[in-house]
Amino acid sequence: MELGLKGKRALVTGSTAGIGFATARALVAEGAHVTVNGRTQARVDGAVDALRRELPDATITGITADLSSREGCDTLTGQLPEIDVLVNNLGIFEPKPFEQIRDEDWIRFFETNVLSGVRLSRHYVPGMRTRNWGRIVFVSSESALQIPAEMIHYGMTKTAQLAVARGLAETLAGTGITVNSVLPGPTASEGVGGFVAQLAASRGVDASVIEHEFFATARPSSLLQRFTTPDEIAAMITYVCSAPASATTGAALRVDGGVVRAIA
């Protein structure tokens, strides 16, 4: 299928590893001109170099900016004033008992996971309106629908992303701009993979044992019964960024391995 992304200018936030990096790679492979983003120059340079080695003819740039603040978002948009495709992938998570989640934690999570996407979308939407074409994707989570008791503050931000995405799609009704959310399930991203490996090492077992236990106890409703891969999530994100996905907007698309027990 021709996705119509050749030459489109795409930004993927938080894209030095995991779902963000896989999405950047998938967009680059489709001919998009992709900007990678991360908080440190070393991580950004490493991601750009890796993509250029794999796809030497591609157009790839990197911008170092901490998007958890207004100043960081301003730094990025100052260097990249116009784009066609925005993937709001940046996100943080942290298991913590509710009683221990301080005000500062709630604010930090909201600033990073929600306001980064709000600020960038607010900046880029006017240009998309002028061109009457654009794609905005919020990378949410199944935790938006099933709030995890072990990190309520994270779940709150993922639900908020769904509200922002749907509301923004409503304001863009009748235009060539689509806004969607993609909801991954438990994914073998860098953070999760590191946590699983560390836990396995501490117990002297294989990582597959930890994975099996996780799905047996924490996510028993999973139909997949394994972690999804970043590439599997990136495939859905890339499709909704494409030209053929022009009739998909205002949607919350689950790539959760069937964790959410719903038929719609």
Score class of each variant (00 low, 15 high):
residue 36 V to Q: 03
residue 6 K to F: 15
residue 26 A to I: 01
residue 43 R to F: 00
residue 211 E to M: 09
residue 247 A to F: 13
residue 136 I to H: 09
residue 213 E to R: 13
residue 19 I to P: 12
residue 29 A to C: 02
residue 204 G to S: 12
residue 83 I to E: 08
residue 43 R to M: 01
residue 187 T to Q: 07
residue 150 E to K: 09
residue 235 A to I: 10
residue 141 S to V: 12
residue 118 V to F: 14
residue 233 I to K: 07
residue 74 D to C: 10
residue 119 R to H: 11
residue 178 T to N: 14
residue 66 D to W: 03
residue 259 V to A: 00
residue 145 L to D: 05
residue 84 D to L: 12
residue 161 Q to H: 07
residue 205 V to W: 10
residue 20 G to S: 01
residue 167 G to F: 02
residue 146 Q to N: 07
residue 142 E to T: 05
residue 201 A to N: 06
residue 7 G to N: 14
residue 99 E to T: 06
residue 201 A to I: 03
residue 250 G to A: 09
residue 134 G to W: 05
residue 254 R to Y: 07
residue 157 T to G: 00
residue 141 S to M: 05
residue 257 G to E: 10
residue 158 K to G: 03
residue 252 A to R: 06
residue 81 P to T: 10
residue 91 G to W: 04
residue 64 T to K: 11
residue 177 I to M: 12
residue 183 L to Y: 01
residue 89 N to H: 13
residue 60 I to K: 01
residue 88 N to Y: 03
residue 165 A to T: 04
residue 180 N to Y: 04
residue 134 G to I: 05
residue 238 T to I: 05
residue 247 A to V: 14
residue 195 F to K: 04
residue 213 E to G: 14
residue 225 Q to L: 08
residue 256 D to G: 05
residue 3 L to Q: 03
residue 30 E to Q: 14
residue 135 R to A: 07
residue 41 Q to A: 10
residue 201 A to L: 00
residue 149 A to K: 04
residue 228 T to N: 13
residue 169 A to L: 12
residue 179 V to E: 09
residue 18 G to N: 11
residue 21 F to C: 02
residue 28 V to D: 08
residue 73 C to L: 04
residue 187 T to S: 10
residue 216 A to R: 15
residue 9 R to S: 11
residue 165 A to S: 12
residue 39 R to W: 06
residue 86 L to W: 10
residue 186 P to Q: 01
residue 45 D to Y: 10
residue 113 N to G: 06
residue 130 T to K: 13
residue 87 V to P: 02
residue 167 G to R: 10
residue 251 A to I: 03
residue 21 F to S: 00
residue 169 A to I: 09
residue 119 R to E: 07
residue 180 N to W: 08
residue 145 L to V: 06
residue 44 V to S: 03
residue 194 G to Y: 04
residue 247 A to D: 09
residue 252 A to E: 14
residue 67 L to H: 00
residue 249 T to A: 13
residue 249 T to K: 11
residue 97 P to C: 08
residue 206 D to K: 14
residue 192 V to K: 00
residue 208 S to I: 14
residue 243 A to T: 13
residue 16 T to A: 01
residue 68 S to K: 08
residue 19 I to A: 12
residue 152 I to Q: 09
residue 232 E to T: 14
residue 135 R to Q: 07
residue 90 L to G: 02
residue 63 I to R: 15
residue 167 G to L: 04
residue 264 A to T: 08
residue 43 R to V: 00
residue 124 Y to I: 09
residue 263 I to V: 13
residue 227 F to A: 10
residue 155 G to E: 08
residue 140 S to T: 11
residue 91 G to E: 05
residue 163 A to T: 09
